[in-house]
Amino acid sequence: MNAQGSDPDPPILQTARMTFRPFTADDFGLLAELHRDPEVGRYMGGVWDDAKIAAVLDDFVSEHARRGHSKWCVHTREGVFVGRAGLSLWRATDEFELGYAFRPEFWGQGLATEAARAVAAWAFANTEAPYLIAFTEPQNYGSQRVLERIGMVRQADRDMGFATPSAFFRMERPAR
Protein backbone atom coordinates (compact mmCIF):
# COMPACT_ATOMS: atom_id res chain seq x y z
CA MET A 1 0.00 0.00 0.00
CA ASN A 2 1.29 3.45 -0.88
CA ALA A 3 -0.56 5.92 1.28
CA GLN A 4 -0.21 9.53 0.19
CA GLY A 5 1.80 10.38 3.29
CA SER A 6 4.42 7.75 2.49
CA ASP A 7 4.90 8.79 -1.16
CA PRO A 8 8.62 9.55 -1.59
CA ASP A 9 7.77 12.38 -4.02
CA PRO A 10 4.50 13.95 -2.87
CA PRO A 11 2.93 16.57 -5.14
CA ILE A 12 4.08 20.15 -4.73
CA LEU A 13 0.52 21.36 -5.11
CA GLN A 14 -2.95 19.88 -5.45
CA THR A 15 -6.25 21.38 -6.49
CA ALA A 16 -9.71 19.85 -6.62
CA ARG A 17 -8.96 18.31 -10.02
CA MET A 18 -5.18 18.33 -10.49
CA THR A 19 -1.82 17.45 -8.98
CA PHE A 20 1.43 19.30 -9.67
CA ARG A 21 4.85 17.68 -9.34
CA PRO A 22 8.35 18.67 -10.42
CA PHE A 23 9.40 17.57 -13.88
CA THR A 24 12.11 14.93 -14.07
CA ALA A 25 14.51 14.02 -16.87
CA ASP A 26 12.16 11.11 -17.64
CA ASP A 27 9.35 13.51 -18.64
CA PHE A 28 10.71 14.36 -22.11
CA GLY A 29 7.86 12.45 -23.77
CA LEU A 30 5.18 14.33 -21.84
CA LEU A 31 6.67 17.73 -22.61
CA ALA A 32 7.13 16.70 -26.25
CA GLU A 33 3.49 15.59 -26.46
CA LEU A 34 2.45 19.03 -25.24
CA HIS A 35 4.78 21.22 -27.30
CA ARG A 36 4.58 19.26 -30.56
CA ASP A 37 0.86 19.98 -30.71
CA PRO A 38 0.19 22.68 -33.36
CA GLU A 39 -2.69 24.12 -31.32
CA VAL A 40 -0.38 24.66 -28.33
CA GLY A 41 2.33 25.98 -30.63
CA ARG A 42 -0.03 28.54 -32.15
CA TYR A 43 0.49 30.78 -29.09
CA MET A 44 3.96 29.62 -28.04
CA GLY A 45 6.19 30.38 -31.00
CA GLY A 46 5.33 27.28 -33.01
CA VAL A 47 5.87 23.57 -32.53
CA TRP A 48 9.04 22.88 -30.54
CA ASP A 49 11.81 20.63 -31.82
CA ASP A 50 13.61 18.03 -29.70
CA ALA A 51 16.49 20.37 -28.85
CA LYS A 52 14.16 23.06 -27.48
CA ILE A 53 12.07 20.52 -25.56
CA ALA A 54 15.22 19.04 -23.99
CA ALA A 55 16.59 22.49 -23.09
CA VAL A 56 13.31 23.62 -21.52
CA LEU A 57 12.95 20.36 -19.60
CA ASP A 58 16.50 20.75 -18.29
CA ASP A 59 15.66 24.32 -17.22
CA PHE A 60 12.53 23.15 -15.38
CA VAL A 61 14.41 20.38 -13.56
CA SER A 62 17.41 22.52 -12.62
CA GLU A 63 15.35 25.56 -11.58
CA HIS A 64 13.20 23.42 -9.29
CA ALA A 65 16.35 21.92 -7.74
CA ARG A 66 17.80 25.41 -7.14
CA ARG A 67 14.70 27.35 -6.11
CA GLY A 68 12.09 24.81 -5.05
CA HIS A 69 9.78 25.90 -7.85
CA SER A 70 9.55 26.02 -11.61
CA LYS A 71 6.99 24.94 -14.15
CA TRP A 72 5.55 21.66 -12.86
CA CYS A 73 4.12 18.60 -14.54
CA VAL A 74 0.32 18.66 -14.15
CA HIS A 75 -1.97 15.62 -14.12
CA THR A 76 -5.62 15.13 -13.36
CA ARG A 77 -6.31 13.49 -10.00
CA GLU A 78 -6.88 10.32 -12.07
CA GLY A 79 -3.34 10.51 -13.45
CA VAL A 80 -3.93 11.87 -16.98
CA PHE A 81 -1.24 14.31 -18.18
CA VAL A 82 -2.76 17.77 -18.63
CA GLY A 83 0.26 19.99 -19.27
CA ARG A 84 2.49 22.26 -17.25
CA ALA A 85 1.99 25.14 -14.84
CA GLY A 86 4.06 26.85 -12.23
CA LEU A 87 6.31 29.68 -11.19
CA SER A 88 9.66 30.49 -12.79
CA LEU A 89 12.13 33.32 -12.63
CA TRP A 90 11.98 35.23 -15.92
CA ARG A 91 15.71 35.64 -16.33
CA ALA A 92 15.61 38.69 -18.60
CA THR A 93 13.96 40.80 -15.87
CA ASP A 94 14.45 38.78 -12.65
CA GLU A 95 10.69 38.73 -12.06
CA PHE A 96 8.59 35.76 -10.94
CA GLU A 97 6.51 34.56 -13.89
CA LEU A 98 3.34 32.52 -13.55
CA GLY A 99 2.87 30.35 -16.61
CA TYR A 100 0.94 27.38 -17.92
CA ALA A 101 0.33 25.40 -21.08
CA PHE A 102 -2.28 22.65 -21.32
CA ARG A 103 -3.15 20.06 -23.93
CA PRO A 104 -6.03 21.32 -26.13
CA GLU A 105 -8.43 18.59 -25.02
CA PHE A 106 -8.34 20.23 -21.56
CA TRP A 107 -9.09 23.76 -22.77
CA GLY A 108 -12.41 25.34 -21.88
CA GLN A 109 -12.93 23.31 -18.68
CA GLY A 110 -11.69 25.87 -16.16
CA LEU A 111 -8.50 23.91 -15.48
CA ALA A 112 -6.16 26.73 -16.52
CA THR A 113 -7.96 29.12 -14.17
CA GLU A 114 -7.86 26.56 -11.36
CA ALA A 115 -4.15 25.97 -11.97
CA ALA A 116 -3.20 29.64 -12.29
CA ARG A 117 -5.12 30.57 -9.14
CA ALA A 118 -3.42 27.76 -7.20
CA VAL A 119 0.05 28.63 -8.49
CA ALA A 120 -0.41 32.30 -7.55
CA ALA A 121 -1.57 31.35 -4.05
CA TRP A 122 1.35 28.93 -3.70
CA ALA A 123 3.80 31.61 -4.87
CA PHE A 124 2.66 34.16 -2.32
CA ALA A 125 2.57 31.57 0.47
CA ASN A 126 6.00 30.09 -0.30
CA THR A 127 8.13 32.92 -1.69
CA GLU A 128 8.78 36.54 -0.83
CA ALA A 129 7.83 37.71 -4.33
CA PRO A 130 6.24 41.18 -4.04
CA TYR A 131 4.33 40.55 -7.27
CA LEU A 132 3.96 38.06 -10.12
CA ILE A 133 3.98 38.63 -13.85
CA ALA A 134 2.44 36.70 -16.70
CA PHE A 135 2.31 37.30 -20.41
CA THR A 136 0.66 35.87 -23.48
CA GLU A 137 0.74 36.19 -27.21
CA PRO A 138 -1.48 39.21 -27.94
CA GLN A 139 -4.07 37.10 -29.81
CA ASN A 140 -4.38 34.51 -27.01
CA TYR A 141 -7.58 35.95 -25.58
CA GLY A 142 -8.47 32.76 -23.71
CA SER A 143 -5.28 32.90 -21.67
CA GLN A 144 -5.75 36.60 -21.05
CA ARG A 145 -9.22 35.91 -19.62
CA VAL A 146 -7.69 33.29 -17.30
CA LEU A 147 -5.19 35.82 -15.98
CA GLU A 148 -7.91 38.42 -15.45
CA ARG A 149 -10.12 35.87 -13.65
CA ILE A 150 -7.41 35.19 -11.08
CA GLY A 151 -6.92 38.90 -10.40
CA MET A 152 -3.98 39.78 -12.60
CA VAL A 153 -4.14 43.27 -14.08
CA ARG A 154 -3.33 44.01 -17.72
CA GLN A 155 -0.47 46.45 -18.14
CA ALA A 156 0.96 48.03 -21.28
CA ASP A 157 2.17 45.43 -23.77
CA ARG A 158 5.81 44.61 -23.10
CA ASP A 159 8.74 43.26 -25.08
CA MET A 160 9.50 39.89 -23.48
CA GLY A 161 12.01 38.86 -26.14
CA PHE A 162 9.66 37.46 -28.78
CA ALA A 163 8.83 38.61 -32.31
CA THR A 164 6.13 41.00 -31.08
CA PRO A 165 5.37 42.61 -27.72
CA SER A 166 3.39 40.41 -25.34
CA ALA A 167 0.14 41.09 -23.56
CA PHE A 168 1.56 41.69 -20.09
CA PHE A 169 -0.10 41.14 -16.69
CA ARG A 170 0.87 41.76 -13.08
CA MET A 171 -0.50 40.70 -9.69
CA GLU A 172 0.57 42.33 -6.45
CA ARG A 173 1.12 40.30 -3.30
CA PRO A 174 -2.11 40.37 -1.30
CA ALA A 175 -2.06 42.37 1.92
CA ARG A 176 -1.31 40.15 4.89
Rank of each mutant, 00 (worst) to 15 (best):
V56A: 09
A51V: 12
A54P: 03
H75I: 01
E78H: 10
L87D: 00
I53R: 06
R84M: 14
H64W: 14
R66P: 00
D59K: 13
S88W: 00
V80T: 15
A54T: 10
A51T: 13
R91K: 08
K71T: 07
S70T: 02
S88F: 00
H69Y: 15
E95P: 03
T93P: 01
H75W: 06
G86Y: 01
I53S: 02
L57C: 08
F81L: 10
V80C: 06
V80A: 14
E78W: 00
R84S: 12
K71H: 12
S70L: 05
I53K: 08
L87W: 06
F60E: 07
V74Y: 07
L89P: 03
R66H: 06
G79M: 11
V74N: 13
L87Q: 02
D94H: 07
H75R: 10
T76E: 11
E78R: 13
E95L: 07
D50C: 08
A54H: 01
T76A: 11
D49L: 05
A92C: 01
R91D: 05
L57D: 12
G86F: 01
V80N: 10
F96M: 11
A54V: 00
R91M: 02
I53E: 01
T93K: 06
T93F: 06
V82D: 09
S62P: 00
G79P: 04
K52S: 12
G83H: 11
D49C: 04
F81Y: 15
V74F: 07
L57E: 11
A92N: 02
W72L: 15
A92L: 10
D50T: 09
